[in-house]
Design a protein around this nucleic acid. Structure first.
Length: 249
DNA sequence: AACGCTAGCAACCGCCTTATG
DNA sequence: CCATAAGGCGGTTGCTAGCGT
């Protein structure tokens, strides 16, 4: 079953580090650098395996480790990079100076994943969850027969709220679903490729106004709609195919 | 006050990759 | 080129503090 755990041999210590152990490790590395992690514990007078020392140093003792609450900008970076890279925590950490892969992984698992779920976004794919956003469901959802049996007002309000949150977090690479109550039209699940960048969607003064094909025309016409952002002169083109954002700009 | 539950996080484990001889 | 050791990574575990009952 794989390699034996390195700490099982020689009666090495496991578990939480004591302040004395931290001190020894810190002092040694400050004076000599870590060199070979394998050899370090013996030289530093620690009853730990090298792996444990490396982890303690990189995740906690290293002087450039930034501790404390993640900023909004850091959260955004993590979400965006996770959308591109997946669970490549070390790669994500490389873009966040002072943050460790372990810290980011923990933060993702305990905070961000939960938040995305609450917003109806699948934290693995970074797309709207199938049960909430799937296009085939949406076609049914907005069919006139269905609408006559439910509150269109509720549907649009929900749509708008979800859209705003989703755009705010994922605009620059996202698939998004948009509705336009005023024109009586709703759009498909759409890809947005924004010239504005993610920051634009964090600004409360910018509102996306959507022109999209009428549902009756869905399936006949891969027509691209537009989003006009108030507070900005730019338009964003929309299209239907989530896996080919290159065609939109 | 005591207990149970939960969230947060430090640390471990095992696998994979890279370096070295 | 191969075998082995060491480093690195991501998933998971388990402890603890805080909160609600």
């Amino acid at each position: 079953m794989g390699r034996a755990p390195c700490c099982d041999k020689n009666g090495l210590r496991k578990g939480p580090w004591t302040p004395e152990e931290d001190q020894k490790l810190n002092d040694y590395i400050q004076r000599h650098g870590h060199g070979s992690w394998r050899a370090l514990p013996q030289h530093a007078g620690l009853l730990r395996c090298g792996k444990s020392c490396r982890l303690r140093w990189t995740n906690y003792l290293r002087p450039d480790v930034k501790r404390g609450k993640f900023s909004f900008a850091e959260e955004q970076t993590i979400i965006q990079l996770h959308g591109v890279l997946g669970n490549k925590w070390s790669a994500i950490a490389a873009q966040l100076p002072g943050r460790t892969d372990n810290e980011i992984k923990n933060y993702w698992n305990t905070h961000l994943k939960k938040r995305l779920r609450q917003m109806g976004i699948d934290p693995v794919t970074h797309r709207p969850r199938i049960d909430l956003f799937d296009f085939s469901n949406m076609t049914r959802f907005f069919a006139p027969a269905t609408l006559s049996h439910m509150s269109a007002h509720w549907a649009n309000a929900r749509l708008e709220a979800l859209t705003r949150e989703y755009l705010r977090l994922a605009a620059w690479r996202s698939a998004a679903m948009i509705g336009d109550q005023q024109n009586g039209t709703q759009a498909d699940t759409l890809i947005i490729r924004s010239k504005l960048g993610a920051d634009a969607f964090c600004r409360p003064d910018i509102n996306a106004h959507v022109t999209a094909p009428h549902p009756n025309n869905w399936g006949q016409n891969p027509e691209i709609g537009t989003v006009t952002c108030s507070g900005s002169d730019e338009q964003i083109m929309l299209g239907k195919h989530a896996d080919n954002s290159e065609q939109f700009q």
